[in-house]
Design a binder for these strands. Sequence first.
DNA 1: GTCTTTATAGTCGTACTGACTATTAAGGGG
DNA 2: CCCCTTAATAGTCAGTACGACTATAAAGAC
Lengths: 239, 239
Amino acid sequence: MRGYDKHAFEPFAVTVDLAVLTLRAGALHALLVERGQEPYAGRWALPGGFLLPEESAETAARRELAEETGLADVTGLHLEQLRTYSEPGRDPRMRVVSVAFAALLPDPPEPLGGGDAAEARWMPYDEAAGLAFDHDRILADARDRVGAKLEYTCLATAFCPAEFTLGELQQVYETVWGTALDRPNFRRKVLATPGFVEAVPGAARLTGGRGKPAALYRAGPATVLHPPLLRTPREGRPA
Amino acid sequence: MRGYDKHAFEPFAVTVDLAVLTLRAGALHALLVERGQEPYAGRWALPGGFLLPEESAETAARRELAEETGLADVTGLHLEQLRTYSEPGRDPRMRVVSVAFAALLPDPPEPLGGGDAAEARWMPYDEAAGLAFDHDRILADARDRVGAKLEYTCLATAFCPAEFTLGELQQVYETVWGTALDRPNFRRKVLATPGFVEAVPGAARLTGGRGKPAALYRAGPATVLHPPLLRTPREGRPA
DNA sequence: GTCTTTATAGTCGTACTGACTATTAAGGGG
DNA sequence: CCCCTTAATAGTCAGTACGACTATAAAGAC
């Protein structure tokens, strides 16, 4: 077939699925909704829904994000298209092609209002197994993608509030990667990357609890990390 | 909307679009087809077509790839989902959601048989402007993605035949990135990465023309590069 | 005060890389 | 046949980055 010129084509239902990720209490959490109907009634699933007639997938994803999180303003949140899942049997009712997105947000308010009446909650990533449809796979792909992008982009700040300490930024890396990082080295690397973070000028300091108060930073204008901040990938061989 | 449970949904046409890339005569080329019908009649476009009822996007993409290239065996070729384009106005006739793929292949035979009767040809990337629909954008995204993946994966070998010289491999990088690389340094880096390439054992050597004959290599088992082979991204500051 | 905790400063050696120079092995042209 | 060109391969050297540490500072807990 060349260039859409065949006339016979199958109509498909097109949906968006959202892997909404955040960090709560030092653990990666995903936003899940409980299904009320068959198939998979009573199972947890990623939030999502059908595209409206005049919507792009990105528009639909941001609309769903606002509905599901109950946040008034989702314009600043990082939303990224993951990939499209189109296996014929992925929805037993009909042929559904789903465009999956990953959304990252700072630790949000617990009350997830808005949206429908169905129950929605934050679930620790490690406990989110047995999801409906192929959502286990989508969620795992989202985590892989985010983990990879932490290496070579400034994405980590998307998990942080507007102002944050370097310790909090480091926790983002440690939580998503599941590895410990050396604090002085992390600090040196982040500060040596121009535009990654910039100090909050007003000698601002904040302490969440014990220890020396940490300086506050906010996200800088850079979007990519050069050189990247690599997960010690030296596996198998001592390099 | 939660979990597909709304009943009203719009049916969409779903297609795949392929950015089939190869290297010919030291330049990146893309496979294009000439449109015979409106809209965009007479314009060049990326090959593609509708999903069949029981096909995934990946299956449809590989089928189209075989049809358009006329190659008997496309199973070994690198095929990668890029992203999905779903802007409402991207096809003036109807609502079409298109899953775009990038395919990489070694310099193929010129006769592009198979497929339909419409004309198909290899076009240098730099001359491929003014494509139909949003295909300019898709093609640019494909080049960006491939260029980025050259940095941290072994993808470059997908542009090479089964056996190749390090000079040919270096040309892949130079052509896609549009930069010159130092030959000894490139060699050192590639050979120091375990599993990237492995020497063809039979003291095999091949000369394409002048100069000292080069040793032959084939793609190794590795898929990722650690540490990555970075484009000198030092722009703006002397680092 | 002392202890604990966390942030921040600095050191040291190794690995990696960019920029080079040198050598080897072919073909082409007189 | 000699010399020049071309391309592959070998090797050097210095600057940078980074992992592993040690040390100091500034807060709360007891």
